[in-house]
Amino acid sequence: MHHFTFLDIVWALIGAAKWTVLLSLIAFAGGTVVGLLILVLRVSGQRPLVEATRLYIEFFQGTPLLMQLFLSFFGLALFGIDVSPLSAAAVGLTLFASAYLAEIWRGAVEAIPHGQWEAARSLALGFGKQLRLVILPQALRLAIPPTVGFSVQIVKGTALASIIGFLEVTKAGSVITNVTFQPFTVYGLVAVIYFGLCFPLSAASKWLEKRLAIGRSH
């Protein structure tokens, strides 16, 4: 068995942190695209579409991410579809993030006074233009801080991808602990790495909140 020096542990964890960052980026990018789509359907006012998206959101918010990842990796294999761990993680994390983001953004959209919709309609704008030109620019202001806040959850959520074989930073911490028997050093470093990833996001969220001056009367 190799002996891990302190530096070995640090480098190994930083190497594993690459997966944490990559998975977070995939989740956030995928979640944004799919989440926007869900949002549009959710506020479209078409009853079947609204109900379908509500079901979608309820499902992904109401079941554990770990289970979603497990099923997207092993579940599809049952039907003879062989998915790579990366595509299973991309699908699982995207669905998860999109459900939460769509719901966060719906809150922002619904916070815009109804008069704005009516005003846009009175200018003969269609639904798409009402949303794109009038509502979303205003909702964006409200949505940015909670969106950034949720991205912190995504970063920490990627730890669950270890169930389908990813050696991201939490799992790397646990396998290194199994060799070195130094949990305090190893998990301490894991915590520092997460903090290094999440703190800038939290700080950005605070900064944006101030800058966009949420809550000021319009």
């Binding site: 070995d8 190994a12 396998v175 290194i176």
Partner: peptide
Amino acid sequence: QDFPPFGSVGTDLKPE
């Protein structure tokens, strides 16, 4: 990868 000496990781995190 978490059960030495059957399987654990080296400093490069490869199983051994």
